[in-house]
């Protein structure tokens, strides 16, 4: 059996006195879509930021395609094919849609930006995704929450990444746009060469698009099962039962 696309072993992360991640071990197989769920503050975003090179873990080991790596920076992770849609989206309001889509991997002719090509590609990618934005030259500040999210997702999806990390990509999406993003994820899955981790609070969506689901609680993975073997009720019960137990103690 080939090594997983991404392997996380005993990762821990503290912020001062606060332990965000205690001991996380999980893996992402090639071509797999993994759903990551957990309460607010469970440490999901922190984990994603470790996997994309933004944070350094205090302990633990990451491996990409079976090779142990120490991610030095976001750029380094990107060079290994890891790309991210952050919960905060990482868009610059003052820049146009197409500049945002190519942020930190701008196309250039000599020292100058190749605006024409970036503009065209941004338009094509967004059209591919079924996102309607009249003018890709418009500043991102003028867009709706869902449109902004679509741009952040498009940026990661069209980056030739092999591992895509999506931190709540559907949070601000309308029903139609959310479905479009889910369809896009399915299309990527069919391509087979992309592995994806999605964080979402909507369990129905998680079960709909993911192959497997992991539950993150108290800084560790407490539940790991193929989505075919769980239901929304079960997942909800798990989380709520934990909460009830916590209150009784």
């Amino acid at each position: 059996m080939s090594s997983p696309a991404l392997q996380v072993e005993h990762v821990a992360k503290r912020f001062g006195a606060l332990t965000a991640l205690r001991d996380v071990t999980l893996h992402l197989d090639r071509g797999e879509v993994l759903g990551l769920i957990g309460d607010n503050g469970a440490g999901k975003s922190t984990l994603i930021k470790i996997l994309c090179g933004y944070h350094r873990p205090d302990a633990g080991q990451l491996s990409v395609d079976g090779t142990p790596v120490v991610l030095r920076s976001v750029d380094h992770a990107r060079s290994l094919g890891i790309d991210t849609v952050y919960q905060g989206l990482a868009l610059v309001n003052e820049l146009s849609v197409y500049h945002n889509m190519f942020l930190n991997r701008e196309l250039r002719i000599g020292p100058l930006l190749d605006n024409r090509t970036m503009r065209r590609r941004a338009r094509e990618h967004l059209a591919d995704m079924g996102v309607t934005i009249g003018d890709v030259g418009v500043e991102v500040a003028k867009l709706s929450g869902g449109q902004r999210q679509a741009i952040a997702v498009a940026r990661a999806v069209y980056s030739d990444a092999r591992i895509i990390l999506l931190d709540e990509p559907l949070a601000a999406m309308g029903a139609k746009e959310g479905t479009q993003i889910l369809d896009l994820i399915r299309a990527l899955k069919r391509r087979g060469d992309v592995s994806i981790i999605i964080i979402a609070h909507n369990y129905a969506q998680v079960l709909d698009v993911c192959d497997r689901v992991n539950l993150l609680q108290h800084g560790t993975v407490t539940f790991d099962r193929p989505t075919a073997e769980v239901t929304v009720e079960e997942l909800t019960d798990l989380v709520v039962a934990e909460y009830r137990r916590g209150r009784k103690e």
């Binding site: 868009l91 610059v92 309001n93 003052e94 942020l103 930190n104």
Partner: peptide, 15 residues
């Protein structure tokens, strides 16, 4: 512009 407009976002984008 990115650093001045969205410091956190620019950092997240790897700038």
């Amino acid at each position: 512009i990115s650093v001045g407009g969205n410091l956190v976002g620019a950092t997240e984008a790897g700038i």
